[in-house]
Simulated scan of single mutants.
Amino acid sequence: MTTASPALDAASVARHIDHTLLKPEATTADVTALVAEAIELGTYSVCVSPSMLPLSLPADAHLKVAVVCGFPSGKHHGSIKAAEAALAIAQGADEIDMVIDIGAAKAGRFEDVQADIAAVRASIPAPHVLKVIIESAALTDAEIVAVCEAAVAAGADFVKTSTGFHPAGGATVHAVRLMKQTVGDRAQVKASGGVRSFADAVAMIDAGATRLGVSGSAALLSGATPAGSAGSY
């Protein structure tokens, strides 16, 4: 059990959230509703599939747009991922969440993993943000460390636990903590996949995550402890 910090109220947790809709059946109307809900909730960004771009945002919306790349398998050639990322940026994305070739990591081909990430990084130079999805539940601890090192070496801004689509599972406190210990101040950590409750969100942030991938953001934030209440998580 983790005791929620008084600083982690609903509004502060919302600013950690990439409000996410990546279902294959998502429509333009669904994404429009996602954007409206994100603005209402005060989330950091929305995260959508590349085919949903460009998005129409209100002029006064303080909302970033994140787009997935090589999603969800990661089994795309690096040049294709790079082109997909570049097109998304050209169509208004601020951030790219790319999936590594998980098989390459499982085979110990970490130089290939790094080259894959570097290709995307080269196609979307800073200040555009690059998050690298490592599918941590499918990796051993040693593989997580090696992949995180490859991501940092390739210039990633974040390492991210999961797509949320892999049968091995999503984010865990253990994985987030290990990822943060590995990257230190060189990159940030995003917890994604199975972050469904306010308690989950607090635990991930306490473990070192600075961003959360959440599809059910309204339900999650509704579980926040009211200001002035003790509450335990």
Rank of each mutant, 00 (worst) to 15 (best):
T3G: 00
T3A: 02
A7T: 12
D9K: 12
A10H: 08
H16E: 00
H16N: 02
I17P: 05
D18L: 10
T20I: 12
L21K: 13
L21P: 10
K23N: 04
E25C: 03
L34C: 09
E37I: 13
G42P: 09
T43R: 12
Y44I: 14
Y44C: 15
S45P: 11
S45I: 13
S45Y: 14
C47R: 06
P54G: 03
S56D: 12
A59E: 11
K64D: 01
V65L: 06
V68P: 04
V68R: 02
C69N: 10
F71D: 04
H76W: 01
H77V: 07
S79P: 02
I80Y: 03
I80W: 01
K81T: 04
A83E: 09
E84M: 01
A85F: 01
Q91I: 02
E95K: 14
I96H: 06
V99K: 03
G103F: 09
G103M: 02
A105S: 13
A107Y: 12
G108A: 04
G108M: 05
R109M: 02
F110M: 10
D112P: 00
D112V: 02
V113Y: 05
Q114Y: 06
A115L: 06
I117P: 01
A119L: 13
A119H: 01
I124P: 04
A126W: 13
P127K: 15
P127M: 15
P127N: 14
P127C: 10
H128E: 04
L130Y: 14
L130C: 13
E135M: 09
L139D: 07
T140C: 03
A142E: 15
I144M: 15
I144P: 01
A146I: 03
V147D: 05
V147I: 06
C148L: 13
E149L: 12
V152F: 09
A156Y: 04
F158P: 07
K160V: 10
T161I: 08
T161Q: 00
S162L: 12
T163E: 04
F165C: 03
F165E: 01
F165S: 03
H166C: 11
G170K: 06
G170H: 09
V176R: 11
K180S: 10
T182H: 06
V183T: 10
D185W: 03
Q188T: 14
V189P: 08
V189F: 12
A191D: 09
A191M: 04
A191W: 10
G193C: 07
G194W: 14
V195S: 09
V195R: 03
S197K: 13
F198W: 08
F198I: 06
A199M: 01
D200S: 01
V202Q: 02
V202G: 05
V202S: 06
A203R: 11
M204I: 10
D206P: 05
G208M: 08
G216S: 10
A219F: 08
A219M: 09
A219C: 01
L220W: 11
L221T: 08
S222V: 01
T225L: 02
T225Q: 06
A227V: 07
G228T: 07
S229M: 12
A230T: 10
G231T: 09
Y233H: 03
